[in-house]
């Protein structure tokens, strides 16, 4: 790769030429440094722009009714209570279902599948699921749970969100378990403990803060998911905690309100957008600080 650094390496006799080359190289360096800093600034400006837009429009639309009233037809004062509760129910249930499965898979990959082919396949498939378009997971659950059981339901939404959180938990669990020193494992086995006790009492305990971080990041991800819910829990404009019926959720309500022609609905959508973004960002920052402190 020395070809790319040739000006510096060829001896130059003429001092004037050398000085000119040096200036040229310095100038390129300064230009690219400046552009890189500008690129970073652009990224930060985009984040700031999103947050400022949300705060300005969201706070303007925020009032007590957002939290105390259910969604109402345009023109009458309504809120987002049913959407918030619906989202909470679906996200919590999906997390409760997805986390243990994800942890078991991650444990399998880290503690049992070292060097096994089956383990490599599972790891590969889990990584694909991690980045696969979430809309396809919605379509899959539609085919699997909505069509055969005769309708959109909260449970279908829960299933879709659980499928999305599983690979996130798998990844962090495996990563965190692989940081646990092997000497610790050997010590426990040497004391005569069976392997499952070693994993539960030592490996999991050492990795717990990292695994919690992963779960929190997973919750943050599924809390904002919209596309998979379009085909599963569908949404509902009334108060509903029945998981066998269509269930409202915050992202779906935001989606249908933001695209509506009614000004009060659009304002409610901004209020909801601010709520969901605050929740997601706080979960992210909380998860990161937890990981930072754990090490």
């Amino acid at each position: 790769m020395s070809a790319t650094t040739q000006p510096a390496l060829t001896p130059v006799k003429d001092l004037a030429v050398a000085a000119r080359l040096g200036r040229g190289r310095k100038r390129t360096d300064v230009i690219i440094r400046t552009l890189s800093l500008a690129a970073t600034a652009i990224g930060l400006i985009f984040l700031a722009s999103i947050l400022i837009t949300l705060f300005v429009k969201g706070f303007g639309a925020m009032n007590l009714a957002v939290f105390t009233e259910v969604t109402k037809p345009p023109g009458s004062e309504g809120g987002l209570l049913n959407a918030i509760v619906g989202s909470l129910i679906q996200v919590v249930l999906a997390t409760l279902i997805g986390t243990p499965i994800g942890m078991l898979v991650g444990t399998y990959l880290a503690e049992y599948a070292q060097g096994s082919r089956f383990g490599d396949v599972v790891r590969f498939v889990s990584d694909i699921l991690l980045s696969a378009p979430s809309i396809l997971i919605g379509l899959f659950v539609y085919q699997l749970l909505v069509l055969p059981f005769g309708g959109f339901s909260g449970w279908a939404g829960v299933a879709a969100l659980a499928i999305i959180i599983i690979p996130i938990v798998v990844r962090t669990t495996e990563d965190m378990l692989s940081l646990v020193p092997n000497t610790l494992r050997e010590a426990v086995i040497g004391l005569g403990a069976p392997k499952w006790k070693m994993i539960v009492l030592v490996s999991w305990r050492s990795a717990i803060s990292g695994i919690i971080t992963g779960v929190l990041l997973g919750i943050a991800r599924i809390a904002g998911e919209t596309a998979p819910l379009l085909f599963t829990s569908l949404g509902n404009n009334a108060w509903s905690t029945n998981l066998s019926a269509p269930m409202p959720s915050l992202p779906i309500t935001i989606y249908s309100y933001a695209g509506s022609p009614f000004q009060d609905w659009i304002e409610l959508a901004w209020a909801g957008a601010l709520l969901i973004t605050l929740a997601v960002l706080l979960l992210n920052i909380g998860a990161r600080s937890l990981l930072g402190r754990g090490k």
Binding site: L47, E225, T226, A227, A258, W270
Partner: peptide, 13 residues
Amino acid sequence: LLAAVPSIIYGMW
């Protein structure tokens, strides 16, 4: 954090 912002928020923005 740009990656954490939900897709629908990008849509509205």
